[in-house]
């Protein structure tokens, strides 16, 4: 228990010292918010069912943070720890691999949550967004979505040979996914064919679920989203535990 706590604290410090992760998790989504906020404002629009661009963007940007930490931070960190012999050094100690991975999950989860809180705070203060959902429901959906993306990240970490490949694979998956799933900007603005393609992307279900819960829709309207993410989580955990390598 003591080692889990120390390890988590250490990983949190390392995360914050690494400019890349901090930027994309905490700063970049805010920059997007202010950029689009200054272009479109947050005036109610019929296209978004009477909500403004910022109202509708907050859950989407949250999905973007989840995808970034899941596909980039998780994958690159684990691949780097393996490549550089950091896992090898840990392996000589009695510390359990579950502590090592658990600390990663906790830190990435908290950082992702912090990214979401920053968005929410900025949205409220600057654009007076209305949060219409139930906070606990949102937290539950956010947790499911984050964990299933971390699962995907650990799975990818298991198959990529080096940190460099991890970075490339992560980016190749991440950017089109953010663009097509509606995490980057409202899907309503994309052509219908692209919206079709989006049904094959796990991130689409994160966007759907978070948007629904954000605006107070019932869980029963999001059974598909929950099912897809739950399956992704289970498959991710099983596959990554089989693929995990110390070196």
């Amino acid at each position: 228990m003591k080692s889990l706590w120390k390890m988590t604290w250490m990983e949190a410090k390392l995360f914050l010292r690494e400019p890349f992760g901090t930027f994309f998790t905490l700063a970049f989504p805010l920059m997007m918010l202010f950029l689009f906020g200054s272009i479109y404002g947050n005036e109610p629009s019929p296209l978004f069912g009477g909500r403004g661009t910022i109202d509708i963007s907050l859950p989407s940007y949250t999905a973007m943070i989840i995808a970034t930490t899941g596909l980039m931070s998780t994958t690159i960190t684990i691949a780097m720890y393996r490549e550089y012999g950091i896992l090898r050094r840990l392996r000589t100690t009695p510390v359990s691999p579950l502590v090592i991975l658990g600390a990663q999950v906790i830190v990435l989860f908290l950082m992702t949550a912090a990214g979401m809180m920053l968005l929410l705070l900025a949205g409220k203060l600057v654009y007076h967004v209305q949060f219409e959902g139930n906070a606990l429901s949102l937290l539950a959906g956010f947790t499911l979505a984050s964990l299933s993306f971390f699962g995907i990240g650990f799975f990818l970490a298991g198959i990529v040979p080096t940190p460099r490949t991890a970075q490339i694979v992560g980016m190749v998956l991440l950017y089109p996914m953010i663009f097509l799933s509606g995490a980057g900007f409202p899907r309503e603005l994309l052509p219908a064919t692209i919206q079709k393609i989006a049904t094959f992307l796990p991130l689409t279900y994160v966007v759907n679920l978070l948007r629904g819960l954000w605006f107070g829709e019932a869980w029963s309207q999001h059974v598909t989203d929950v099912a897809v993410l739950a399956v992704a989580l289970v498959v991710g955990v099983l596959a990554s535990s089989r693929l995990f390598r110390w070196e």
Binding site: M7, L14, G85, I86, R88, R89, T92, T93, P94
Partner: peptide, 26 residues
């Protein structure tokens, strides 16, 4: 206790942090 011919710690981990962390394993 084991010292390996080849291994590493994260570049941004400080000396005292490494010792403090590893001490918590024992």
């Amino acid at each position: 206790g084991m010292q390996l011919q080849q291994s590493n710690l994260p570049d941004r981990m400080k000396v005292w942090e490494a010792l403090d962390l590893y001490a918590s394993f024992y």
